[in-house]
Design a protein around this nucleic acid. Structure first.
Length: 781
DNA sequence: TACAGTCGGGG
DNA sequence: GTGTACGACTGTA
């Protein structure tokens, strides 16, 4: 037997064999190995139906091996009697399962629809990009596989990935691309070769591309628009011209096409373009990878390593699917039955959706206005931390009523942590370790970016785990578990507030997992340290000083200036870092010109520490506003800076009122351009009817038709948002508008109540919805 | 004024 | 691997 060492690149089912493995050998070779992989799944239900299924399977050509077993169903207290069905390979298992699920729809099925890579991760503790040792026999079959690292290693040996970058010279959604640029290189390494191919010269294109693929033999195609245009286009031309294009490494496979999809998910449409997955080689379309902006290839690799999902999948799915995968792997390892996922999953809520709103996060109404020397204090990964510390899991919350007021954990039957804490604990630990390493690394260290990307990937996984708990279609979701988490969260935040007040701090604001406090003479981190320790002592949860704000402004509602708004604020930390929430600069539909100017104004306001310096900052911000207004009016603002981008929430017919985005969509459809719900539509405001011009029309907009006054209004409003807390009268700001109409539009936006004397802010602690969880948080049956 | 439509959140 | 939170704010009718 031959021993190989290397990195596991790809893994997928192969009929009549089991698993196909692709290994990046330490010797630089790429190995296609096969491994037998029998699979077991389970059926449970009425004894008579199970007997019928038994008889049905006994004479089945797939010849499954049948056993009667007792296994743990997480949603049932006692063990369940199940029929275990052993099948030779995963392809046969899938076919058999589909067949009997149709024939016996009344049974419950378990471990039936788990993807091979996850079964593999559970059985062999191997995961994508794992460094491993494989014993191979003379037939190329992997006889033994052994991991040599774990997903929890902080500095795993970087896989020597060969990458082929494929770029187009134009966005195919706007203009037909003419040139394909190729660059080969390694992970973290410089480019080793560059090629440019003409997309219109199809024969040479395909012939050259084939040669390049064979010469470079990349492990990963990293493309722009590869999913949505390039790969489908190349494959289609290759078929039409009869020129084979070996995008796959596995010659027996065709690339897998996944269709585009628009779906509704917690209040908004989401669109994911079509996808092309390869075999033996990975393809990632940067534009179609959901979290790419956040964490790049480094984060995708990290997600694949800890979740067990194949790299191509890990890069494209939302982190919710990642956490779901991890839960399944944990369950398989622990012998807990994995329920069949009958309904397709809705996109899980991110915790933040829930944080801000209905799921029982504690929200205060802040003290509106400008405050100096404020400590911002946050619980560290609050919800995941709560799940781990208080052992919250679908099976542990069942039938238990621990006293949340006393912050007692849920008990486990076997004294082991529940499924969710078991899954989350190592993630939390690794994220913490990554962040600790970050603290020690100097700013210039290139490893910073890597650790940050990894920490960000972990953050998302942790955050979505909470959303998944409360999500009715999640395999391991249970609403009581979800409610328990928020109840503990409220209790912890209340205790933090009490601790702060006990130590003489004024609590300016509370928001789910954070609080803003101040005290005369508390100006240094050390002055807040006793509070951190006290909160930690009272709650058992780690808490940290986010920073000390030189100043922070909590904004009132625009609709009614007497009402504080929980999540509209901006401020600057001691080190000059800005924190901005909820205002125009943060909104993805704000034209860049508006967002940038507002942000620059905040930067000017943030300069200086003395009152005089701050006054100067306000004057500078006003000066900037005047200059930007003049530039706008003189037509010198670049067109692309004025583009509004909004996400379509529905098909055009479903719009009841012709909003700007709907009118832009009409224009696009008139020239045959389709935009699906969930995709973004870009447009600029123009004078007269129809008031907008779609940015992606074949002809660019005429700069002379732009409705510059409308932009002036938007700019002045954004300016009011940040200048008002500094005592500037909004009417004075609106006065910068040169024409009466603009002034009126701005003025209309300045709330009438502004002119009244502001009543003291009403401050109420409220759980926005408790859904059966009583105010101080015990859980009803 | 009423209703319709978009966005947020973290780091 | 589609199924509707909720509040703030802005635009249209």
């Amino acid at each position: 037997m031959n021993e190989l060492r290397g990195w596991l690149l790809d893994i997928y089912p192969e009929a009549q064999v089991g698993a196909a493995l692709w290994l990046i050998g330490e010797d630089g070779q790429r190995y296609h190995l096969r491994q037998p992989f029998p699979v077991t799944f389970y059926a449970a239900g009425r004894a008579s139906t199970l007997r019928r299924l038994w008889r049905y399977l006994q004479s089945h050509p797939a010849q499954p091996v049948l056993k009667r077993e007792e296994r743990q169903d997480i949603f049932v207290k006692s063990m369940r009697t199940v029929l275990a069905i052993d099948v030779n390979d995963p392809v046969a298992q899938n076919a058999l399962f589909q067949e009997i699920a149709r024939a016996f729809p009344d049974l419950d099925y378990f471990d039936a629809d788990v993807a091979l890579p996850l079964r593999y991760a559970a059985r062999h503790r191997l995961f994508p990009l794992a460094y491993c040792r494989v014993g191979v026999d003379a037939n190329g079959q992997a006889q033994t596989v052994e991991p040599l690292d774990t997903p929890w290693d902080l500095s795993p040996a970087p896989p020597p990935l060969r990458i082929l970058y494929m770029e187009l010279d134009a966005d195919p959604a706007r203009n037909k691309p003419t040139r394909l640029s190729l660059r080969s290189g390694s992970f973290h390494g410089p480019a080793t070769a560059e090629y440019h191919l003409d997309l219109d010269l199809e024969r040479p294109l395909l012939i050259n591309l084939k040669a390049i693929l064979q010469r470079c033999d990349p492990d990963l195609l990293l493309t722009t628009w590869g999913d949505t245009w390039l790969l489908p286009h190349l494959l289609e031309r290759s078929a039409a011209l009869g020129l084979p294009l070996p995008l796959n490494r596995d010659p027996a496979r065709q690339p897998a096409h996944h269709p585009e999809i628009s779906y509704f998910s917690y209040g908004q449409m989401v669109h994911r373009g079509r996808q092309v997955h390869l075999f033996g080689r990975c393809h990632i379309d940067r534009g179609n990878a959901m979290m790419w902006e956040d964490y790049d290839l480094e984060g995708a690799l990290e997600t694949a390593r800890v979740t067990g999902l194949p790299l191509q999948t890990a890069a494209r799915v939302s982190p919710g699917s990642g956490i779901s995968a991890m839960q399944m792997v944990t369950a398989l390892r622990e012998g807990i039955l994995v329920p069949w996922h009958k309904q397709q999953a809705e996109q899980p809520k991110t915790a933040l959706d829930l944080l801000a709103t209905d799921q029982g996060g504690l929200v205060y109404q802040p003290l509106v206005g400008l405050h100096h020397d404020v400590g911002g204090i946050d619980f560290v990964s609050m919800y995941p931390g709560i799940m781990v510390r208080f052992n919250i899991s679908p099976e542990t919350v069942q039938g238990q009523r621990p006293c949340i007021q006393d912050l007692e954990p849920f008990a486990s039957e076997n004294d082991l942590p529940g499924l969710i804490p078991l899954t989350l604990a190592p993630l939390l630990e690794k994220r913490l370790a990554l962040k600790n390493q970050l603290i020690d690394l100097p700013k210039w260290d290139p490893r910073r970016k890597i650790y940050q990307a990894r920490a960000s990937a972990h953050k998302w996984l942790l955050v979505t785990c909470f959303g998944y708990l409360g999500y009715k279609n999640a395999r391991f979701g249970r609403i009581e578990a979800h409610e328990a988490v928020t109840a503990y969260g409220r209790e912890a935040l209340l205790r933090a507030k009490e601790a702060a007040e006990g130590l003489g701090f004024t609590v300016l604001h509370l928001y789910v997992d954070g609080l803003w406090v101040k005290k005369p003479d508390a100006k240094e981190p050390a002055d807040f340290q006793p509070l951190l320790e006290e909160v930690c002592r009272r709650t058992g949860l780690p808490i940290s000083l986010d920073g000390i704000y030189d100043w922070i402004a909590f904004l009132p509602s625009r609709v009614d200036a007497r009402v504080p708004v929980a999540n509209r604020y901006f401020g600057v930390f001691r080190d000059g870092t800005l924190k901005v929430r909820g205002i125009e600069a943060r909104r993805r539909d704000a034209p860049p010109f508006i967002a940038k100017t507002q942000m620059e104004m905040v930067e000017l306001l943030a300069q200086g520490h003395t009152p005089d310096e701050r006054q100067a900052g306000v004057r500078k911000a006003l000066g900037l506003l005047r200059r930007r207004l003049n530039r706008l009016r003189s037509g010198k603002t670049p067109l692309e800076e004025l583009v509004v981008s909004q996400r379509l929430s529905r098909e055009i017919e479903a719009y009841k009122s012709l909003s700007p985005v709907a009118r832009s969509l009409q224009q696009l459809q008139a020239v045959g351009k389709e935009v699906r719900p969930g995709q973004r539509v870009r447009f600029v405001y123009t004078r007269g009817r129809p008031g907008v011009y779609a940015w992606d029309l074949p002809t660019p907009p005429d700069a002379r038709t732009l409705d510059l006054e409308r932009y002036a209004v938007l700019l002045l409003r954004a300016a009011c948002t940040v200048l008002e807390p500094f005592g500037l009268n909004p009417q004075l700001i609106a006065g910068l508008a040169q024409n009466v109409q603009t002034q009126q539009l701005c003025f209309k936006l300045v709330p009438r109540n502004e002119r009244q004397r502001r009543e003291p802010a009403v401050r109420t602690a409220m759980t926005t919805r408790s859904r059966g969880v009583s105010e101080r948080g015990t859980i009803p049956d």
